[in-house]
């Protein structure tokens, strides 16, 4: 194993503080890990402008790489292109479902002005029983990236990651 892939794997396995079942690689916010001379430079992109977990994630990546023996670690931010839930990996989708959180549907493809949406999005399939007969109970949940739902078939409430 080269040192480059090793550093990448160390950084990539950092868990997200809000969705700890996902790594930052699953979430799609890890953009690159570069090694030049003695320094590792990790580039991540924020999910939401106000995401309070960015500082924690930055600190976690730094600490993991330092503990793995890399002395000089820099964690940089990249804003463009903007993160979308389409960057959550297939593995990420699977882990979300396994933890009772409905993964996001594909993000809307847009050209021109964003149309106003006065109706609720199509129901998210229940991650517990798989039924499509669910309803959204709130547009926001404990974090901005999730919404609240209830399954009409099994009666369980669940969270879903919003398509963005």
């Amino acid at each position: 194993m080269t040192e480059q892939t090793n550093a990448y794997q160390v950084a990539a396995s950092t868990p997200d503080p809000e969705l700890p079942m996902l790594t930052i690689e699953d979430l799609g916010i890890l953009r690159s890990v570069d090694q030049s001379a003695e320094e590792i430079t990790v580039t991540i992109t924020p999910t939401y402008s106000g995401c309070p977990a960015m500082r924690e994630i930055t600190g976690d990546i730094h600490d993991r790489l330092t503990k793995a023996g890399f002395a000089q670690v820099t964690v940089n931010t990249q804003l463009a292109p903007a993160w979308t839930t389409d960057w959550i990996t297939e593995d990420g989708h699977r882990k979300l479902s396994a933890n009772g959180i409905a993964p996001p549907s594909p993000a809307p493809r847009r050209s021109g002005p964003i149309p106003l949406t006065l109706t609720a999005p199509p129901p998210a399939p229940c991650p517990r029983c798989g039924s499509a007969d669910t309803r959204r109970t709130a547009e926001f949940s404990a974090t901005a990236c999730k919404s609240l739902h209830r399954c009409n078939a099994c009666g369980e409430p669940f969270e879903g990651v919003k398509a963005l």
């Binding site: 924020p46 939401y48 402008s49 106000g50 995401c51 309070p52 109970t137 709130a138 547009e139 926001f140 949940s141 404990a142 974090t143 901005a144 609240l148």
Partner: peptide, 16 residues
């Protein structure tokens, strides 16, 4: 439900 909505919207704007 409106608590979480308004708090999250305020957080987005604070991030901006």
């Amino acid at each position: 439900e409106e608590e979480t909505a308004v708090a999250n919207i305020a957080l987005d704007l604070l991030g901006q």
